[in-house]
Each structure stands twice: as structure tokens, then as C-alpha cells.
Design a protein around this nucleic acid. Sequence first.
DNA 1: TGTATACTTGAACAGTTATTCATATGTTTT
DNA 2: AAAACATATGAATAACTGTTCAAGTATACA
Lengths: 124, 124
Amino acid sequence: MARKIQPAERCDCDVIHEDTVNQVREKMPQEENLYDLAELFKVFGDSTRIKILWALDEAEMCVCDIAFLLNMTQSAISHQLRVLKQAELVKSRREGKIVFYSLEDEHVKQIFDQGLIHILEERK
Amino acid sequence: MARKIQPAERCDCDVIHEDTVNQVREKMPQEENLYDLAELFKVFGDSTRIKILWALDEAEMCVCDIAFLLNMTQSAISHQLRVLKQAELVKSRREGKIVFYSLEDEHVKQIFDQGLIHILEERK
DNA sequence: TGTATACTTGAACAGTTATTCATATGTTTT
DNA sequence: AAAACATATGAATAACTGTTCAAGTATACA
């Protein structure tokens, strides 16, 4: 199963376990899905956004409530809510001057819980 | 339940739903856990690392295998493996010149699967 | 109509990050 | 010992990101 490596290939080494690579390659999900998955986790990869999502899992809240809760400016929160909305993680509804935000997707909490399991395991 | 807002508070608005805020505040996890959770998701928030983890879920692989599979330089992969190792997501074992990497934590896949559910739901 | 309020938005800035390049380390083989 | 090879690492760079600041909307109410 040995094979000449083409110059175009970038891994800078001669000996690879081609069987393994081919076997893994077959099982890899579509590039697009992996990319989108990374984009989703990127949204989760900020403690402000994590806090907002966690808060909204408890109750629907207006921008000002969230800003007060997290002790941050209303502008900063608003910017982050836009990111969360673009990721279809939160939705909003206006009631007069006030805009209430809530979770769009109920299994966000499940993803967080899985993450926490990892974190708490790490601390053992 | 109305209350005067202190100048130190940053949310730039007068009317907050204090009951809601207090109720949510009680249920929020420790700051430290939320921060660590964000750090974990930050590691997942890069498609190269997602691909590496997904690949290692299928099989133990050496650096060169991964570089070849993903068509990236061995150096780039090595840098990312260091990040994954620091996050205690992968472990390595040396066999002569070759260093094999594998998953450290078996429920990474479960977190990914939850994420995929969200992504596929979004596309409906 | 004008003012106050809740929120949004664009630009700017500082801080972070992924990859590249060059070089170093550790192991095997000759 | 030296050469070859797999991997690691430090520095540099370009791209990205979160917050702030200074406006801008949209709604309610006097």
C-alpha cells in the first residue's frame, strides 16, 4: 500500500498510513457541515454570549435587563444579541419601546450541559 | 419593586424588570464555569480543529496523516494539536519518530452531534 | 410636536488568533 | 557521527473579534 507522495501534497513527510487516512476520509461529514459546526461553536465561544444564552434559558428578558444582569453596556449586549440572532439562537419581540429576547432553539442548553460535563471531568 | 438605579450600573436605562433579573441571577452557574465553557467552545470554534477531532474520533492518527487528510502543512496541524492538547481534548503517544494522537474525551462526539442537530434544524 | 426612553448601528481601537516560514528537537538508520 | 525524517516551536503577519463611543431609529407620552 505504499505510494509516492505528490509534490502538491502539503504534509512535508513521506510515510503516511494511507489505509487509515482513506478509512477516515470516507467517514468524515461534508466539509460544509463541519464548517457550519465550527461557526456555531464560534458563537458559543464567548463568555458574554454564553451568559446571555444561559440567562434567556431561564426567562425572556429585555436588552436592559440583560445589560443590568451582566453589568455591561446596553450597546455591547445589543451587538451580541445581533450575533445570536444571526445564528438563529435567539428571537425577539417588541412591546412598545421594549424589545424582549428569548431562546429560539431549545436544545442549546443540552449542548451547554454536555460541555459542562467535559469541564467538570477535567477538574477531577 | 421599583428601585433607583445607581450611577455605577452600566445598562443606561431606568426601567428594568428587577424580579426577572433577580430570579435569573440566582439560577446562573458560577462565573468561572461559564468562562470555562466559553473557552471550551472557543476551541471547537475553528473548522481545522473540528476536522481534527472528527478524524481522531474515527481513528488514532499521526500528525502527518492528519496533515495529509486535511491538505494542510504539518506545522499548522501541529500548532492546532497543541491547542487541543492544552484543552485536554486529545492525547499523544510516541512510537519512534512518529507521534500518534487520539481523543482524550469520548463525549466530544456527543457535543458535536448536538451541534449538528441545531445546524440541520436551521436549514429546514 | 417635542422630549424621553429603549434599543440599534457604524466606525474605531485594542486584543486575539490561524497560518506560514524558518529553525529546533528527538528518534532512527547508516 | 552524520544524515534523514517526523514533529515541535517561536516569530511574524494578516485577518478577525468584542467593546466603546457617538450617532441613529422607533415608540410612548406630555
